[in-house]
Amino acid sequence: MSPDDDTAAAAQLPPLQLLHQDERLAVVNKPAGLMVHDSKLARGEDDFLADRLREQLGRQIFLVHRLDRATSGCLLLAFDRETASALGKSLMGGEVQKDYLTVCRGWPAEESWQVDHDLDGGPGKPVKKPAVTDFQRLATGELAVPSGEFSTSRYALLRCQPQTGRFRQIRRHLKHLSHHMIGDTSHGDGRHNRIFRMQGVHRMLLHAERLRFPHPDGSTLDVRAPVDAAFQKALDLFGWDVPPGGLQSPP
């Protein structure tokens, strides 16, 4: 495919939703299933969020952080190296606070809790480092599908705040708790994933709902991303509404 063909194909795609934009930075609502940038995980793909944004905005962009391909929601980027560096320092300093929504199997016993469980860096990076995630249970529900000795299958809606940035941290911490994330084909529970696919939900249920961070101009930005139709379909199975919630500061 020629560069002209690539440009024509990109023009046919719907524009990415910008949740905030100013002269120095933007927050985009990343769609689930779209890779952020080219990498070893791309497997020959040629459609990346970074390329789409450059074409859509007609300017250079600098990604401040990453989201997994299957994750949707708030993604922060800068338009110049100085701003990218300032935001990167805020991220490393724990000043960028993140809220995620997810659905897990089972009903966690506590309304709020913290997981402090070291994780390695992923394939080829065996050294374990500290990994901390805060969780809140927002709602519980059941589906009329037998699960083991039980006549129904139980699920919970969670809000999560990772306090560190390890490889697939939320997904792996939920596996550690045996409250596997729904739709996670790498660290989840295949039987429960199939139950949701039977209900018409075919995505991993992890959404970067909210970012709060210091703008280099001295103000503070607080940005939210609405869930997509597939995530909303999962919520509607249980009649769940996402309650408003504040971000927790790192301990």
Rank of each mutant, 00 (worst) to 15 (best):
56 Q>L: 11
63 L>N: 06
61 I>S: 03
56 Q>C: 07
119 L>K: 07
68 D>P: 13
89 K>C: 04
99 D>P: 00
77 L>A: 07
116 D>S: 13
58 G>K: 14
123 P>G: 03
90 S>T: 12
106 G>Y: 06
95 E>P: 03
67 L>E: 13
85 S>Y: 04
78 A>R: 02
61 I>T: 06
94 G>Y: 08
90 S>M: 04
75 L>W: 02
65 H>S: 05
99 D>V: 14
77 L>G: 08
67 L>Y: 05
64 V>N: 05
102 T>Y: 00
118 D>S: 15
102 T>E: 04
111 E>G: 15
113 W>K: 00
119 L>Q: 12
86 A>S: 15
119 L>H: 04
122 G>K: 03
111 E>W: 01
60 Q>A: 10
111 E>Q: 13
80 D>P: 02
107 W>A: 12
69 R>F: 02
111 E>I: 04
56 Q>F: 05
68 D>Y: 02
87 L>S: 10
110 E>N: 03
61 I>E: 07
113 W>Y: 11
64 V>S: 06
99 D>K: 14
97 Q>D: 01
70 A>I: 10
67 L>D: 11
65 H>C: 10
122 G>H: 06
57 L>T: 08
118 D>T: 10
96 V>A: 00
111 E>T: 14
92 M>P: 00
101 L>N: 07
125 K>T: 06
63 L>W: 06
55 E>N: 03
109 A>F: 02
114 Q>G: 00
84 A>F: 01
101 L>H: 08
84 A>S: 15
95 E>W: 01
86 A>W: 01
89 K>H: 14
120 D>I: 06
117 H>Q: 12
94 G>S: 09
81 R>W: 01
116 D>K: 14
68 D>S: 04
93 G>K: 11
105 R>W: 06
73 G>E: 08
107 W>F: 13
62 F>K: 02
59 R>G: 06
57 L>N: 06
83 T>D: 09
66 R>Q: 12
124 G>A: 10
69 R>D: 05
97 Q>F: 09
104 C>T: 15
